[in-house]
Computed example of a mutant assay.
Amino acid sequence: MKSFPNLKSIVLALSILACYACNQQTEKAETEAIPPKAEANPDTIALTSENIKEVLTAYGQKHPDSIAVITTRHGSIKVRLFKDTPLHRANFVRLAKSGFYDQGEFYRVVKGFAIQGGDSDNRTMKQTAYKIPQEIKREYIHKKGALAMARYGDDRNPDKASSSHNFYIVQGEPVPLYELRTWEEKHGIKYSPAELKLYQNLGGEPSLDTEYTVFGEVIEGLDVVDKIAEEQVGASSWPVKIVPHTIKVQ
């Protein structure tokens, strides 16, 4: 004779089914509640030696800015950032947009050579330690007004990678032809007639060519560069009266 489950068995079975359905719904709800994995934001992700090319390339594509204004108590310097040095351009724009450069100053001034900025003893904003892969272009010489990144020397930095944030603007002086010929031989390059004319008339610092990444140039405010270069300096060429700067991109 066919047996039938008693009432207690039926209630237990229904309870088990109800719990199973409840668990299934909970798992589904939990699964649906998990947001899709967000892509790394190049505006905020910390830079490292492993991710720097990827992050700065993505940032540069998102922020194609190529004009920046450096403002000081002596006036403003407008610079054009070169698009064919994309990592340096993106890094400079990124630091400017984050406000990092607004806490910097021209902390090294060598009249007839260059003014160097970006750092400051008064900075509160911090960043990770990294270097920018060099993007040295033969066509970008260190004429007066050239914007370039500082770096450690070849003994500890044979790849000529740039500083993460310290930049300089060349002041320089007119360079005689015989000296330019010497630098041509030393660096294994040949200046064009136009470059020779620039160095002889406008001035610059050919000793730095092929050694540092030039990634921009002054298009307005060379007189401000000259004024900063006139600052009285103390030890390590640090201005006696600090020259803070802010940097905005346009």
Rank of each mutant, 00 (worst) to 15 (best):
1 M>F: 14
1 M>V: 13
4 F>M: 04
5 P>D: 09
5 P>N: 06
5 P>C: 05
8 K>Y: 10
10 I>C: 05
22 C>G: 15
23 N>A: 13
23 N>V: 08
25 Q>L: 14
26 T>K: 08
33 A>T: 04
34 I>T: 15
35 P>I: 03
36 P>C: 11
38 A>G: 01
44 T>E: 12
45 I>A: 14
51 N>P: 06
51 N>M: 02
59 Y>I: 15
69 V>L: 10
73 R>A: 06
77 I>H: 04
77 I>D: 01
80 R>S: 09
80 R>G: 02
83 K>C: 13
87 L>N: 00
91 N>A: 15
92 F>G: 09
94 R>D: 15
99 G>F: 01
102 D>R: 11
102 D>H: 07
103 Q>K: 11
107 Y>Q: 07
108 R>D: 01
118 G>T: 00
127 Q>W: 12
132 I>M: 09
134 Q>A: 13
140 Y>T: 00
141 I>R: 02
146 A>W: 01
149 M>V: 06
149 M>L: 12
153 G>I: 03
154 D>N: 13
154 D>W: 10
158 P>G: 03
159 D>C: 06
165 H>G: 10
168 Y>N: 04
172 G>C: 05
175 V>P: 12
176 P>F: 00
182 T>H: 15
183 W>I: 09
186 K>Y: 03
187 H>Y: 00
191 Y>H: 05
192 S>P: 00
194 A>Q: 08
204 G>L: 06
218 V>E: 12
222 L>I: 13
228 I>N: 04
230 E>S: 11
232 Q>V: 03
237 S>R: 07
238 W>T: 10
